Amino acid sequence: MKVDILTREYPPHVYGGAGVHAEELSKVLAERIDVTVRAFDGKRTEADIPAIPNAADAKGSLKVVGYDTPSELADANPALKTFGVDLQIANDVDADIIHAHTWYACLAGYMAKMLHGTPLVITAHSLEPFRPWKREQLGGGYNLSSWAEKDAYEHADRVIAVSGGMRKDILTAYPNLDPNKVVVVYNGITMADFATPAPDDPGWKVFERYHIDRSKPTLLFVGRITRQKGLPYLLKALHLISKDIQVVLCAGAPDTPEIAEEVKTAF
Rank of each mutant, 00 (worst) to 15 (best):
G117R: 06
T102V: 14
G117Y: 08
T102A: 07
H99L: 12
Y104V: 05
T123P: 07
A124G: 01
A124S: 10
I97A: 14
L107C: 01
A124W: 00
K113V: 01
D94T: 11
T123L: 04
H101V: 05
A108Q: 10
A124L: 00
D94G: 10
I97E: 13
L107I: 05
A108H: 06
A112D: 03
I97Y: 12
T102W: 09
V93R: 09
H99E: 09
I98M: 04
L120T: 04
L107V: 06
T118D: 03
A108S: 14
Y104I: 01
T123N: 04
A112V: 04
A108I: 11
D94F: 11
D96G: 15
Y110I: 00
L120I: 07
Y110R: 00
W103H: 11
G117T: 09
H99C: 08
A112E: 03
D94Y: 10
M111K: 01
G109M: 08
M114R: 13
Y104D: 09
L107S: 12
G109Y: 03
T123M: 06
L107E: 11
I122V: 14
H99R: 09
D96A: 13
K113E: 02
I122D: 01
A100M: 03
D92E: 15
V93W: 10
P119G: 08
A95Y: 12
G109F: 03
G117I: 08
I98Q: 02
A112P: 05
L120H: 05
T118V: 15
A112I: 04
T123E: 05
V93F: 11
